[in-house]
Design a protein around this nucleic acid. Sequence first.
DNA 1: TAAAAATACTCCATAGGTATTTTAT
DNA 2: ATAAAATACCTATGGAGTATTTTTA
Lengths: 309, 309
Amino acid sequence: MTIQQLEYVVALDTHRHFVQAAEHCFVTQPTLTMQVQKLEQEIGITLFDRSKKPLEPTLAGAPIIAKIRSILLEINQLKSFVYNEKESLEGTYRLGIIPTVSPYLLPLFLQDFTTKYPEVNLQIREMQTAQIIDALKQGTLDIGILATPLMDQHIREIPLYNEPFLVYLNPSNPLMREKELVADQLPMEALLLLEEGHCFREQALRICGSKLEVNTRNFSLQSGSIEGLKNLVKKEVGYTLVPYLSVVDELGSSNIKRFTQPEPSREISIITHKGFAKELLLEKLGECVKENLPSELQVMGSSRRVNWR
Amino acid sequence: MTIQQLEYVVALDTHRHFVQAAEHCFVTQPTLTMQVQKLEQEIGITLFDRSKKPLEPTLAGAPIIAKIRSILLEINQLKSFVYNEKESLEGTYRLGIIPTVSPYLLPLFLQDFTTKYPEVNLQIREMQTAQIIDALKQGTLDIGILATPLMDQHIREIPLYNEPFLVYLNPSNPLMREKELVADQLPMEALLLLEEGHCFREQALRICGSKLEVNTRNFSLQSGSIEGLKNLVKKEVGYTLVPYLSVVDELGSSNIKRFTQPEPSREISIITHKGFAKELLLEKLGECVKENLPSELQVMGSSRRVNWR
DNA sequence: TAAAAATACTCCATAGGTATTTTAT
DNA sequence: ATAAAATACCTATGGAGTATTTTTA
């Protein structure tokens, strides 16, 4: 017994005519004939009386066909449930976003998104990468926005944009005079980093070469926020790396120096657990984020750029 | 989407283990794995989180699996309904039986049958062959008992027994002195027949040769019953053909003369419309009839004998 | 005789098998 | 290291097609 056969039976009961029923099922008459015969054989009951013109269900067949109709109804309910599960744009979703992205990205798209999709309720939490991944896997979070790739089999990544790293420095810093700014040739000792746990810290350390964790300064601050670092840099001679979106409004200022091409960057993606099925929501969310990005970040090549994670 | 796939999904949800689920479905693990994957692909939703040990349904998968369970439940309901339809031994059924069989056969098995199957209610009507066939086709009758074969595409025949024809005659009839009694050599003029419409009339005429309808006697009676014919024969010099069961209690009497082998006979069958699905009922009815037949009729060869219909 | 259903046959998609690799604990 | 799941590859069943025959109104 196959779903096809059940559909053929219902079509035949509806049209009372093999040729018409077959057309309606987009198959040929012999195909439908054979499958109906086969089902009749399998259950051992003749469902249709072919001697009547137009044919009609047998006495025994009628209630069986009715039952078959209700089965197909349930199957269609399943299909539309699945469709809704994927295509509906309503409901409450828990979104985790890393602190080095959150304060700069959210203001860009959130208002637009909530206006466009008023039935979607986003519960946004600032979380660090590891927390987000754990929460997704535990099912306590639906969506994450963070730096990728994660290389995690169970996490699905939907890239949003590549965000360049820039150097944020005190104008009196010697680096200011450098003509070319190459990533892994920065002096390590002056690097101000975020506190442990922020993925941005690791990203910055990678960019600045392999001699990690060396700090020759007589103090070390691991701030919890980019803004904290920036403020410190303004007072000190040190420097720090900052993500593009955090300085998008001060690009021309004397605190900013961009790397020589190719600029180091990080990929920011929407991620979900593989069990999260709201396809359309993810699509619309990604779309909305991208639309509201500064134009420089919008043109994301189809292939991923060099990543520094 | 196939029923198999749905069953695999439910098995996997039940066992939370590919190998065990596959065993339970009597397939190999790769087969189950592939089919579950395929279904997931088709609907575009990952149903199971394989990273958990033991695996578990995804958030999106759980309600879908629940729905699948209810679909399979309905399908099983269908199957058991079909089973009941065929195998149940209860209900009311309309049985048509020809007059030349009815008064002799019914007393043989009816009590036994109603005792054995008290839940079956038989509404028996004496009807002639053509009426029975029409009624079956119109759905106003469920079962018929009559002489076969009918060569009708829409009627199913379940042979019961072969019933020999015997000659019933007045002891003073010249035929009494014949040593060999061969069917088509009987003198036509003395044949007493049933009235038009009885299939037995045609059967008898065939047996007695091709010169139909010739009646040289100075009277002609077409009685409505075998008993009427028999009574007439006892008073007259004529003779008639009678079916075995009508004379089973007077086989040794001087009114009976059997034909030389091979005796002409008629096949008596249970017939139904092809839409009648009560397989077990038909089987038990046939069984019961055969069991209660006189022993001479019980040994029915697997191949049909020469039929005189 | 024309339309409808059944049959004969051919083809190819795919369910299911075995063997193996990959992954996770 | 071990068990579980995924993958690769092969085979064969059977669904679906075209062409044709049979049947019945």
